[in-house]
Write a protein that binds this DNA or RNA. Structure first.
Length: 590
RNA sequence: GCGGCCGUAGUCUAGUUUGGUUAGGACAUCAGCCUGCCACGCUGACGACCCGGGUUCAAAUCCCGGCGGCCGCACCA
């Protein structure tokens, strides 16, 4: 497309928003003075406030009402963490390049497609083995028929070394989740040993994407919001479900996706669970909450859907996954959150790799008493028989299964404890009363995970309106970076001085206020509309007489007149949705 | 990563084909005047050829490389 053709095409919403975002300071590509670097964004003065307000709204929506814990762990973590989590193995792509046309392919995908190998088969093979398979089967480039060159591993985690001299590998976390799992032991203590509980992290994550595009939608460094919700798999019920059970969800199920059905089915949360469409109650609960949250950001229900991940699309840790998708004008359906049932995968892995027991404990309702057979070593016999290895023998015997020991004695007259031959005279098998107060288990995890930067873009796109040829960002009022503008009607006759008094008072009340006396009053309103400032407070000649001001509504451009004295109380109520615009004063007839 | 197109003030753009004066305009911003409620007007100011190399007397313009953007392919666990 050449330039004039590009010009012919009307700007789409993404371009309009990008332009506005740059011009008014919401966000822009980072490091522009050095030519920019793809996949990194800087949030400007307005954008960082908007983002923080969205995240604070998230806190008020997901964290506070349910007593979830918010923590902040490090972005860089030792290699071990991601070996255990499976990311080192899964977060990379084996690539192979055609030596003729230079196109690149995923080696495993090529083998799956042209050698009929399955996902699980290719997963087991090393890079070298994958390359060997390509050679052995004489697979050529599917595009041009050329020969494949060498294959290379592309790790999509950012790698570094920790400390100046050590070779210790560290990775930038590709998700905040692992920072929660590795701290589970302490968090479980914070929860005073009770399940269920959830932990949230809002922080940066790094993914070295091959080719990020789409502005703030796909970044190499981004803000992720991960909730890890821990529960007892034997008690998977969600007591809060009744609050959301009649919410409807638009689901695109995996089975329908396979059949090529693109229309979502609309079911209530209750139906989805009863029909087994969603496996875990907590997952359904968080999905309903997420839908609601996005509505609060300005996205109507019919612009949202949940799409179930197919087996091979799911991450290595997930047994069921839904992506919450939002319709965006430029790209169609875009993922804003992922909802995965991670089971006990992560805790189990970290237990295995660290050797630390991270199981939860639950007491039985009643004390369980039962008799149990135990193998008890007779020390006076073992000592003389095994001398200096006796203590090792004792350890081995104590851990032995009494049933096995018994049958071995019966069948062969001895029992091999490791390399030691234990005779019946060395031990006695006794019955012992044991009291079982409870049991240990690894909790299961439901993970809702949100892209914070995407939510900023989504909020902008859904707020973007045109009114009489000018741009109005109709943010939900509590998201607006600037809450109100205060303007002197004209910049003379003492009006600016009076306006500054009102400004100081509102700042002191904790509002985000913008003072503007440049240009005409109409221009100031327009400037304010363009960044979504919900209210415009204008000081005019009448103010000097009776201490009243006009308040203008961003969306309707209607005005009311109100006493300065009562403003703080009214405005606080307004931003907490306790009163509406018309309640702020006497309507001015225009 | 590959291929195609592209890169000029804060933003949008003219100029690039055919190298040549002080790189032009609009909007925005700032200052002053004006201004009694929706981007008013007047005057002025600030402000740009993505980076590096090459060709040439001379490069925004031509060539090479890099970086960045858009589209398509691939990728987005």
């Amino acid at each position: 497309m050449n330039r004039s053709e590009q010009r012919m095409q009307a700007q789409d919403k993404f371009e309009k928003i990008s332009e506005l975002a740059k011009r008014r300071g919401f966000f822009w590509p980072s490091c522009e003075i050095y030519g920019g670097v793809s996949g990194f964004m800087t949030f400007g003065p307005l954008g960082s406030v908007l983002k923080r307000k969205i995240e604070d709204k998230f806190r008020g929506f997901f964290i506070r009402p349910f007593g979830l814990y918010e923590i902040e762990s490090s972005v860089i973590m030792p290699g071990k963490v991601f070996e255990a989590s499976g990311h080192v193995n899964h977060f990379k792509e084996p690539m192979i390049e055609c030596s003729k046309c230079k196109r690149r392919f995923r080696v495993d995908h090529v083998l799956q497609e042209f050698a009929g190998m399955s996902d699980t088969e290719t997963e087991k093979l090393s890079l070298q083995e994958l390359a060997n398979e390509i050679n052995k089967r004489n697979i050529k480039c599917p595009e041009c028929g050329g020969d494949f060159g060498e294959s290379k591993q592309f790790l999509t985690m950012f790698t570094t070394t920790i400390g100046p001299y050590s070779g210790a590998v560290g990775y930038g976390r590709p998700e905040a989740a692992q920072g929660i799992f590795v701290e589970f032991k302490r968090l479980y203590e914070c929860a005073r040993g009770k399940l269920p509980f959830g932990v949230v992290q809002i922080g940066h994550a790094l993914r070295n994407e091959i080719s990020p595009r789409q502005g703030p939608i796909r970044l190499r460094e981004f803000t992720i919001i991960d909730i890890e919700f821990f529960f007892d798999p034997e008690d998977p019920r969600c007591p809060l479900l009744k609050d959301v059970e009649n919410e409807s969800l638009r689901l695109i199920l995996a089975e329908n996706k396979l059949k090529g059905i693109k229309e979502p089915v609309e079911v209530t949360v209750k139906e989805a669970l009863n029909k087994g469409l969603i496996k875990a109650e907590w997952q359904a609960f968080f999905m309903a909450l997420s839908k609601h949250f996005l509505m609060k950001l300005g996205v109507p229900e019919d612009k949202q859907r949940f799409i179930e991940k197919l087996d091979w699309e799911r991450a290595h840790y997930s047994v069921q996954g839904f992506d919450q998708e939002i319709f965006l004008e430029r790209w169609g359906w875009v993922e804003v959150s992922g909802h995965n049932y991670r089971t006990n995968y992560d805790l189990k892995q970290h237990m295995e790799f660290s050797g630390v027991d991270m199981r939860a404990f639950k007491e039985h309702e009643k004390l369980v008493e039962r008799e149990e057979a135990v193998v008890s070593p007779i020390l006076s016999k073992i000592g003389p028989a095994f001398k200096d290895t006796a203590s090792e023998v004792v350890r081995l015997i104590s851990n032995a299964n009494p049933k096995v020991v018994k049958t071995r004695f019966k069948k062969q007259g001895f029992y091999m404890a490791g390399r030691f031959k234990v005779l019946p005279e060395h031990v006695e098998i006794i019955r012992k009363e044991v009291e079982e107060r409870g049991k240990h288990f690894i909790p299961h995890v439901i993970e809702p995970s949100f892209g914070s930067d995407r939510m900023v873009y989504i909020a902008l796109e859904y707020a973007y309106k045109m009114k009489e040829d000018r741009v109005v960002l109709s943010f939900p009022r509590e998201l607006a970076p600037i809450e109100m503008g205060v303007f002197p009607l004209v910049s003379k006759d003492g009006l600016p001085e009076k306006t500054k008094q009102v400004y100081e008072m509102l700042i002191d009340e904790g509002f985000n206020v913008d003072y503007d006396e440049s240009g005409s009053i109409g221009r100031r309103y327009a400037r304010a509309d363009e960044v979504g400032t919900p209210l415009g407070i204008t000081i005019d000649y009448q103010t000097l007489k009776d201490d009243t001001v006009t308040i203008r509504d961003r969306d309707t451009w209607k005005q009311v007149r109100s006493k300065i004295k009562g403003l703080p109380r009214l405005l606080h109520a307004f931003f907490r949705y306790k009163v509406e615009f018309r309640d702020l004063g006497q309507l001015i007839k225009s």
